[in-house]
């Protein structure tokens, strides 16, 4: 793993509040599932929130798997929407 493996993870609304940061860089080799697991392990209080979130990778809805993410990808962590 090198620094160039990193992906940008952005947290919105309650996800940001629970995880405690707006964004961070994490290893893409973990895959989306591994990233979610790592963040959950680090911040157990965010566990239920993360379990209820959906994810975008470079703007596309993506389900968590172990498939490595491309370096530099943008991962958005989205709680259920509440507009209107």
């Amino acid at each position: 793993m090198t620094a160039t493996d990193l992906v940008q993870v952005r947290y919105f609304a309650v996800a940001r509040a629970r995880v405690g940061v707006a964004e961070e860089w994490l290893p893409g080799a973990l895959g989306l599932a591994g990233i979610v697991a790592a963040v959950t392990e680090r911040t157990p209080e965010a566990s239920a929130t993360l379990a209820g979130c959906s994810f975008l990778v470079n703007g596309l809805r993506t389900f968590p798997t172990d498939e490595p993410l491309v370096a530099g990808a943008v991962v958005d962590v989205l709680p259920p929407f509440a507009g209107g």
């Binding site: 609304a13 929130t49 209820g52 709680p79 509440a82």
Partner: peptide, 17 residues
């Protein structure tokens, strides 16, 4: 997303899991 601010001074994200 919306965060509701209550008269009691606390607040809550709506629909938050």
């Amino acid at each position: 997303w919306k965060r509701q601010v209550y008269a009691a001074g606390d607040h809550e994200w709506v629909n938050a899991p």
